[in-house]
Design a protein around this nucleic acid. Structure first.
Lengths: 348, 348
DNA sequence: CTGAAAGCGCTAACAA
DNA sequence: TTGTTAGCGCTTTCAG
């Protein structure tokens, strides 16, 4: 038997140390007292033989794996990848490993992924970003492992959600525009059935409008109710049409436009430019997200930065808290955002 | 016993189907003949009971897990994340799962990660991007699982490397500049000890120079030999100094500069601008990598696009080939790159 | 074509 | 303070 070629197991260690496997197991786990002397001997032998416990066998026995499942819609996207980095950072320190799955915005795939990694005895599931429907989770989650949502909605409000305060963020940036002297401020965004954030962002705008002593005016709304594109691209056409209908003689009834996200904001800038408007001289534009492009676009975009890494870290911490049966208060889960001032807005 | 709360196992299925666990196992794996009738019955029951085999138990027995380890320096980076997406795409189709680890450019962490996931009985390891030293792998890889490198060097040339032809790519883009009428073309890049690609890219440049009937002129080289920054940032200072010393009266002895990567190219553009040069009117600049910023920079960068997703997919395929003991020819592993023409170069 | 049973490496209940 | 042993869920050898 060529033992040199294969990793030693707990039995080997026990034999060499002249103790039982139980003692070795407990020396490692610390779950029951082992005399200093024996412990020393065991650890020495462990080191000499380069032993590390077999994670798979341990998982099978304990029905715990030290692995956390992460499901993300895509990887090659600054939002998700940075959140995941945050998760990894915190969880690695606690000794967990990550199994990362990509759902490609497909709920069926997501479900399959969860099924599969569930049988790995993952100790928790963190869902990053994306969509709405997650009722399938309970159906699969027979072992009742903790589930945490990172920057993801849950209409049923069943799982802890680590996110940002969408309403407040939009409210803040609208306030910022009012403070800059704008009197009439419009809003452009999706208003899709069932999308909670769509409603929240609009509410943030409305809140600020009222707070600043104005009346909410529906004609200042460029709200797209179609529910096609989850990522929020392709608002360009929609705004272009709006401008053609409402922007006669290069006049609009607002001097600033709050956009629900950076994609919409960039589309808005481009559509405005094409229709002869100047940003920010004629119209100030704000975005939401602080995507990479927002910095390099011309003009660069005033927007709201989302603390992505922090969201990841916090998600991990929430998970740990659940594991340790510490209770979490909802108020801890909403992170502050920050306004990034660039060139798409101006003081009036 | 409340079986409704827990996942059924193979024994449960066997009992309900009135067959042995062996038969269930073989029905699933197809490794030995099971009568159509029995198979049908078994699969029906599997479906009804929502059974899926326990991956952990299977791994323990088979010393295979259906899991592939991926180690990447960072996640939030278009290069790595897109390669990983490619890997995931191909491997998911083959039924593999991915455990993704982040090494933060730290070899010790990388080693630890490998150790840990090795005990998960991962079936293979794909190392994405980054650094040089990988001799530690054999030391850990007692089970001798296949190792594939994606866009990563290996001085020992021990493992299959899926990458691009750096030399040819740089040679091509230098050719492109010659064809555009440039007679004197410079080169800016790192030349760090032990970095194979540094040498390869420079060789590509030299190859093109000679091919185009010129003599290699050392004074056209802006080569940084320090070995600080692995990512290739902060060339700005270096080039700035060079320009101050060699660019009197806004005259340089070249009209085009081939840069080893996009970061250097962007630094070069900025340094040139600051020193009173116009890009591309005075000097044409090319990069390598086609990073997001290269498109939005002013002027936008003519550069070489790397087929990142393809690299990922191919890495996965190579892994599968190794598993299936198909031999791989080295020539299959080098992917073509593509020149992306933008505004930082001009025809003379 | 099918089954019984050993055993993968570990943990923990029970026993001393 | 330590040891014996059952068993986690599965695959596979050996035996029909």
């Amino acid at each position: 038997m060529d033992r040199s070629k294969i990793n030693p197991n707990i039995k080997d260690i026990a034999k060499i140390a002249n103790v039982s496997v139980t003692t070795v197991s407990h020396a490692i786990s610390g779950k029951r007292h082992v005399s200093e002397k024996t412990k020393e001997k065991i650890f020495k032998i462990i080191k000499e033989n380069d032993y590390s416990p077999n994670v798979v066998a341990r998982s099978l026995k304990k029905k715990e794996s030290g692995i956390i499942g992460v499901i993300t819609p895509v990887l090659n996207n600054e939002f998700y990848s940075e959140i995941i980095e945050g998760i990894e950072e915190s969880l690695r320190l606690k000794g967990y490993m990550l199994v990362i799955n990509i759902s490609h915005f497909n709920i069926t795939k997501e479900k399959e992924h969860f099924r599969k990694i569930d049988s790995l005895f993952i100790d928790g599931l963190i869902l990053v970003g994306g969509f709405t429907e997650i009722s399938y989770i309970d159906e699969i989650n027979k072992r009742n492992i903790p589930v945490v949502l990172a920057l993801r909605e849950d209409p049923q409000n069943k799982y802890p959600i680590v996110s940002i305060d969408f309403k407040k963020s939009i409210s803040n940036i609208t306030d910022f525009l009012f403070k800059s002297g704008h009197e009439n401020i419009g809003y452009a965004g999706w208003l899709r059935e069932g999308k909670i954030t769509d409603r929240k962002t609009l509410d943030g705008y409305i809140e600020s409008v009222k707070k600043n002593g104005k009346k909410f005016n529906k004609s200042l709304l460029i709200a797209h109710t179609a529910s096609e594109d989850d990522q929020g691209h392709n608002f360009y056409q929609f705004i272009d049409t709006y401008l053609k209908q409402n922007g006669n003689n290069r006049k609009l009834n607002f001097t600033a436009l709050v956009c629900q996200n950076d994609y919409i904001a960039i589309d808005a800038i481009n559509a405005l430019k094409k229709n002869g408007f100047n940003v920010p001289n004629d119209i100030s534009i704000t975005g939401f997200g602080n995507i990479a492009k927002s910095r390099y676009h011309n003009p660069s975009l005033t927007t709201i930065a989302i603390p992505r890494k922090k969201i990841g870290r916090l998600s991990a911490e929430v998970f740990i808290k659940i594991i340790n049966k510490n209770n979490i208060s909802d108020s801890d889960l909403l992170l502050e955002t920050e306004i990034i001032q660039r060139d798409s807005t101006r003081q009036l």
